[in-house]
Design a protein around this nucleic acid. Structure first.
Lengths: 211, 211
DNA sequence: ATACTAAACGGAGAGTTCTCCGATTAACAA
DNA sequence: TTGTTAATCGGAGAACTCTCCGTTTAGTAT
């Protein structure tokens, strides 16, 4: 999602390409604001941006990626919050409170943009995991879980903590089942607390090689 | 998924309708076996079954539901296993071992049919939750979690335990990340063990009314 | 200025899912 | 049998997403 910019990485975008990217992004954002993400049609975006539909696809790959690009602004702020903001969300706090703060913040973010997230995640099966943000969340949580319990399978558990925040489940709980947002957060707390309380099952050996 | 058959329920299906349902189901199963679920096209199913595409949609609603219908056979056996089979999967065992057995069995099932499940779950946002099986799993797990810790939010936690078995995450872990099936199962074990070990956070009051 | 080339453009078209509604027919009563 | 009617049928068509590839153009070397 964020261009990390390898040295000698992809050659810079041509001026016309950059220009079109901005026009497309602006058009998409406006259409989503007006009619919701689900109603976003690639043909219409292209027309509104004054480019061909082929251009939209070359710039963004597919509809899910375009939607993630629209989200990007808020996403950057969220990332800054847990990477370098004040504790307990940022560095400095103990692992468990920090995991909780992260999950609460992610729940808030999911609540705010569940419409866009749902559309993007539904559009293509692996959209959620292919968006760079997911990898970042996963590594962040895995780091904290490992600090909480060095013997745990932190990579798996990070996925497992993120899984209940998939947009489809989240929205189903919030809107179809009518669960409150604070109830969701308390549920996530309970899940995280369990990881701190339970001894890692299985062998008592140190960080086993994982397959 | 399973027709529970209310008394005075929906009027019985007309003979031609039942006949067409069977033809459609057989055609779909064959095509999936031959070319995979993702390649299943509703037009082709209709043609192979010798009916119009409208008939396919009236009988099954959408592509996701058709795929779930194809799965149904194995699904019934799985349900029988945890509803009335021998312990630890069936009744009689302690809650925690039973939760573990259930999650392991569900992981096996997901492994076996991840192709079909992924396609169905990707097709429509809420397909997973709308299929009756999900509600059954959720109630089953909630019952066991409540027995494990009466103060926990068993309904939420049941969803949270099922979330990592969403087909898209499961396949991503298995095939893109290369995690082994047993690693997934151990991860689920750790999650479940946490619920048993951690005291339900929040007020120490008995089963609070949930919103 | 001019020529060159890799990148970008754009829209026709392939291939889907799902909807709509006039035509058809199963089931049943007389 | 025959008539009635509500359920069912089927395929044309609407609305999409995404691909392909001939055409155009930005950036650069001469």
């Amino acid at each position: 999602m964020i261009d990390v910019g390898f040295l000698g990485g992809p050659p810079a975008e041509r001026a016309d390409a950059a220009h079109n990217r901005r026009k497309i992004l602006a058009a998409a954002a406006e259409m989503i604001a007006a009619r919701g993400a689900e109603a976003l049609s690639m043909d219409e975006v292209a027309k509104a941006a004054g480019v061909g539909v082929g251009t939209v696809y070359r710039r963004f790959g597919d509809r899910a990626a375009l939607i993630y690009a629209v989200i990007d602004d808020r996403e950057r702020r969220f990332q800054a919050g847990f990477l370098s903001g004040p504790p307990p969300l940022g560095p400095g706090a103990e692992p468990l409170p920090r995991i909780r703060a992260f999950l609460h913040a992610l729940a808030d973010r999911t609540e705010e943009q569940s419409d866009l997230l749902l559309t993007a995640e539904t559009d293509s099966a692996y959209a959620r995991f292919n968006d760079g943000s997911y990898a970042l969340y996963q590594m962040h949580l895995a780091m904290l879980v490992a600090r909480l319990d060095p013997r745990a399978d932190s990579a798996y558990l990070a996925d497992a903590l993120l899984a209940p925040l998939a947009a489809n489940l989240f929205r189903y709980q919030r809107h179809t089942r009518g669960m409150s947002l604070s109830r969701v957060k308390q549920g996530l707390d309970a899940l995280a607390a369990g990881l701190a309380a339970a001894p890692a099952s299985g062998s008592s050996a140190p960080p086993a090689p994982r397959d």
